[in-house]
C-alpha cells in the first residue's frame, strides 16, 4: 500500500519540518523579525552533532540536550547585540531581512573556514537499521526519533507558553507589545529569551536533519530557511500549532508526490503553498499580523 506509507512518511517528515520551522515562527511572532539566518543555525546544529559524534562518540540524542544551553545563550546575546536595534527601527520586518541576510552570509563563510565545503553526516545506523512497523509499514527508526523529538519540543513549548509566567508574558507581547509593556512586562528580556529558544529549536532540528535529509553542508542554510519559511506561511505566521500543521501539509505533499509523480516532488509543496495563500492568505491557523 504505497499511499499508506506516503501518509505515514508525510506525517513524520511533517513533524520534522514543523520543528525546523518552529523557531523561525516563534521569533517572528514575538518580534516581527524574519531571521534569514535560521537555516544557517540549523546547519550549525548539524555540524555540532557530527563533530561530537566523530570526536567523542556522542549519541545525537545526547547532543540534542547538549546544544540547548549554548543555543539559548547565543540567541539571548544575539538579541541584545542585533535584534534590539532592528526592533527599534522604523520598519523592523524589512530591517531584519537585511540584517539577518548579512548574518547568514557571515555564518556560511565562517562555517566554510571551520568545517570545509564537504557534506558531513553521521551514519544512520546509529538509530538502528531495522525498521519499525506502523500499520504494517516498515518505518526507519531515525524518522520516529526525529518526529518524536519534534512532538516533545512542541509540547514543551506549549507548556512554556501556557503554564509559565514567562510564557504568558511572551504571549502578551505576541498579542500587543505596548499593552504588555503597560502591565510591566519587560519586552527586551522576553524577546531575548524567545530568540534564544528559537535558536535552540533550530539547532535541534539541525541535528535531526542529518537523518531526515542525509547530511549538512555550510551552503545549505538558504534552502533550509526557504523551506522553513514556506512551512510557517502555510501554517500561519505567528502560530506555533499552525507551524506543525503547515509542516505536515508540506510533508504529505512531498511524500505523496514522490510516490505518484516523483519528478514533481520539488514543485508540489510550493504549489500547495500558493493555493493556500490564495484561499486563506493568513495561512491555515494564522492570525492577521498587520492592520491597515
Amino acid at each position: 500500500m504505497l499511499w499508506l506509507f506516503a501518509l505515514i512518511a508525510g506525517v513524520l517528515f511533517g513533524l520534522y519540518y514543523g520543528l525546523a520551522a518552529l523557531g523561525l515562527n516563534l521569533i517572528f511572532g514575538v518580534m516581527r523579525m524574519v531571521n534569514l539566518a535560521h537555516g544557517d543555525v540549523i546547519m550549525l546544529g548539524g555540524f555540532a552533532a557530527v563533530l561530537l559524534f566523530d570526536h567523542f562518540g556522542v549519541n545525537p540524542l545526547i547532543t540534542v540536550l547538549l546544544v540547548i544551553p549554548p543555543s539559548l545563550l547565543v540567541g539571548y546575546l544575539t538579541y541584545y547585540l542585533l535584534g534590539r536595534r532592528v526592533q527599534r527601527s522604523r520598519d523592523p520586518e524589512m530591517m531584519s531581512l537585511v540584517m539577518f541576510f548579512g548574518v547568514s552570509q557571515v555564518i556560511e563563510a565562517v562555517a566554510v573556514i571551520a568545517f570545509g565545503n564537504n557534506e558531513a553526516s553521521i551514519t544512520s545506523a546509529v538509530f538502528g537499521t531495522r525498521p519499525f512497523s506502523i500499520a504494517g509499514q516498515g518505518v526507519p527508526g531515525a524518522w520516529l526519533v526525529s518526529a518524536g523529538v519534534g512532538l516533545v519540543a512542541l509540547v514543551l513549548l506549549f507548556l512554556y507558553l501556557y503554564r509559565t509566567s514567562l510564557g504568558r508574558a511572551t504571549r502578551a507581547i505576541m498579542s500587543s507589545p505596548d499593552e504588555a509593556r503597560a502591565v510591566g512586562v519587560n519586552p527586551d528580556r522576553i524577546s531575548a529569551l524567545t530568540f534564544g529558544i528559537g535558536v535552540g529549536l533550530a539547532a535541534i532540528a539541525g541535528i535531526l536533519s542529518l537523518f531526515m535529509i542525509g547530511g549538512t553542508t555550510p551552503s545549505e542554510g538558504v534552502d533550509l530557511t526557504v523551506t522553513a519559511f514556506a512551512v510557517i506561511v502555510l501554517g500561519g505566521l505567528g502560530s506555533p500549532m499552525g507551524t506543525f500543521l503547515g509542516g505536515i501539509v508540506f510533508g504529505l505533499a512531498l511524500m505523496f508526490t514522490q510516490t505518484y509523480a516523483p519528478v514533481w516532488s520539488g514543485f508540489a509543496p510550493f504549489a500547495i503553498l500558493l493555493v493556500i495563500m490564495l484561499l486563506r492568505p493568513t495561512g491555515l491557523l494564522g492570525r492577521t499580523v498587520r492592520s491597515v
Binding site: F5, A6, A9, I213, G214, T259, G266
Partner: peptide, 10 residues
C-alpha cells in the same frame, strides 16, 4: 532531492 525513504519504499 535529499529524502529517499519513500522513493525506496516504492
Amino acid at each position: 532531492t535529499t529524502s529517499y525513504g519513500t522513493l525506496l519504499h516504492d
